[in-house]
Simulated scan of single mutants.
Amino acid sequence: MKFYQRLAFFLFGLLIGVIFLIYFLGAKAESRNVTFCYLPNCRVLKDIRNKPFHYSEEASAVLAESWIDTLDIKNTLTYGDVDFSKSNIKEGNAKLYVISGKTQNNIPVVLEILNYEKKAVLKTIQKE
């Protein structure tokens, strides 16, 4: 058997193996609701979302206004962008993260979140 025939059989088998892994392991990850966060922005947002979430008095006062609600906060914590130049600052036992996003009405919003070891607290909400 010549080299190019062996190479063709090898590549064909490799292709079948990769398709098998993608199909079965991908379905297994989706059924268990597993997400793969390797980038810093994704890791910070996932860490904040997985902790008990609390609101400060200032944030609760802004939420009482009609331009933003808790669904906008959750969407910002899912799809927002962390500003690392202003974030990861120690404030007592917590780290401050500044996250920018948009409301459902396309109003730019900036959230300041204190990320403690066991909880996350929304400190302020600002229109950008």
Rank of each mutant, 00 (worst) to 15 (best):
S56R: 00
N93R: 09
A120N: 02
A61I: 12
C42D: 15
L114F: 08
V18D: 06
V98N: 03
T103I: 07
G26M: 03
I89Y: 02
N115F: 05
I107R: 10
A29Y: 09
S85C: 05
M1I: 14
K28D: 14
F20A: 10
I68G: 10
K127S: 08
F20D: 12
S56I: 05
L45P: 01
G101M: 06
T70P: 01
L39R: 12
F10C: 11
I113E: 01
L114D: 01
H54P: 02
E58F: 04
A64I: 08
F24E: 14
Q104F: 12
L45N: 08
I89K: 15
E65H: 10
K74C: 06
N105G: 02
V109A: 06
D81L: 10
L21S: 08
K102F: 15
K123T: 00
T35Q: 15
F9P: 02
V82E: 07
G17Y: 10
E58S: 08
N105E: 11
N93P: 00
F10E: 11
A61M: 08
Y116N: 01
Y55Q: 05
A120Q: 00
E57P: 02
T124S: 11
I16F: 14
Y38D: 07
E112N: 09
I113S: 04
Q5I: 15
L63I: 13
L21G: 06
V44I: 13
L7G: 08
R43M: 12
R32I: 01
V110D: 03
H54V: 09
F9Q: 13
S87T: 06
V34T: 07
A27D: 13
L45T: 04
Q126A: 11
L63G: 01
E112G: 03
L111Y: 03
F3R: 15
L122F: 01
F12C: 12
N106W: 07
V18I: 15
G101P: 13
Y4R: 13
S31T: 07
F20G: 06
K86N: 07
I19H: 07
F10Q: 13
E58M: 03
L111H: 00
K74R: 13
F9L: 15
V44K: 05
I19R: 07
S56H: 03
N105P: 02
L45G: 09
Y23A: 12
D81N: 13
A61E: 11
S87D: 11
C37Y: 15
K95T: 03
E57H: 07
P108S: 08
P40I: 12
D83W: 01
P108R: 09
G13P: 10
F9E: 15
E128I: 00
V44A: 08
L25D: 11
C37P: 00
F10K: 14
E58A: 06
N33G: 11
F24Q: 14
L71C: 05
G80D: 09
F36K: 00
A59S: 10
S87L: 01
L21H: 07
K127F: 04
V98F: 01
L25V: 05
N105T: 11
L114G: 00
I99E: 08
K123R: 02
V98H: 05
I16K: 06
A8V: 07
C42I: 09
K86M: 06
